[in-house]
Design a protein around this nucleic acid. Structure first.
Length: 178
DNA sequence: CTATAGATAATCT
DNA sequence: GATTATCTATAGG
């Protein structure tokens, strides 16, 4: 499901962007919050698929995940970067004086740009205030190791849209999948 | 371009 | 007390 989310559109309350970078996390993955079972924080990961798992990162930022099927599995996809397509003014207002390239180029940046916080933890991703739209055309997806983790760091579980200028970081080897 | 400090809170040891 | 699915500002090459 993670590579299939690349190219889809994330729609917020007043802004939207194409998902250009994601990472997958699941229960048997030591880097995943669901690794220790349905703890208070990770409970949503074991809940309804298609809902949002929002957690605080480094005490400062919010990060958004899409909970995966089937229910109760503890699997989710972290949204790491968007290509802004709508509501640019609202994003700029929330993000401050950064270049447009950096508006949504990172998991914490993307949530700040869309105004997403812990209040949306567990929310359905089926429309307002948050939703995901299917992509309209096939895309070329890159694969590489995940970013910012120490456990299972060599697993190629990060996926990105080939050629996007909005990735949080480039992919090491441009290997295509899907 | 790389390197590093600092902010800050939930979770882990 | 240490670590963490991060970001920004600043200093140096």
């Amino acid at each position: 499901m993670a590579p299939d989310l690349v190219g889809c559109t994330l729609v917020g309350a007043d802004a939207a962007g194409v998902i250009v970078e994601v990472e997958r996390y699941q229960e048997d993955d030591p880097a995943s919050h669901s690794f220790r079972g349905p703890t208070p924080r990770a409970a949503v990961m074991f809940g309804l698929p298609g809902h949002a798992y929002v957690y605080r990162s480094y005490g400062i930022h919010w990060c958004l995940n899409v909970v995966c099927q089937p229910a109760g599995q503890g699997a989710a996809v972290l949204l790491r970067a968007l290509a802004p397509v709508d509501g640019l003014e609202a994003m700029r207002a929330r993000r401050g004086p950064v270049p447009d390239r950096l508006l949504c180029s990172g998991p914490g940046r993307l949530t700040q740009a869309l105004g997403i916080d812990g209040g949306l933890n567990g929310a359905a991703l089926d429309g307002r205030p948050l939703g995901v739209l299917a992509r309209e055309a096939p895309v070329e997806v890159l694969v590489g190791p995940r970013i910012g983790i120490t456990r299972a760091a060599d697993q190629p579980w990060r996926f990105g849209l080939a050629g996007s200028p909005h990735l949080s970081r480039p992919f090491p080897l441009e290997r295509a999948v899907a």
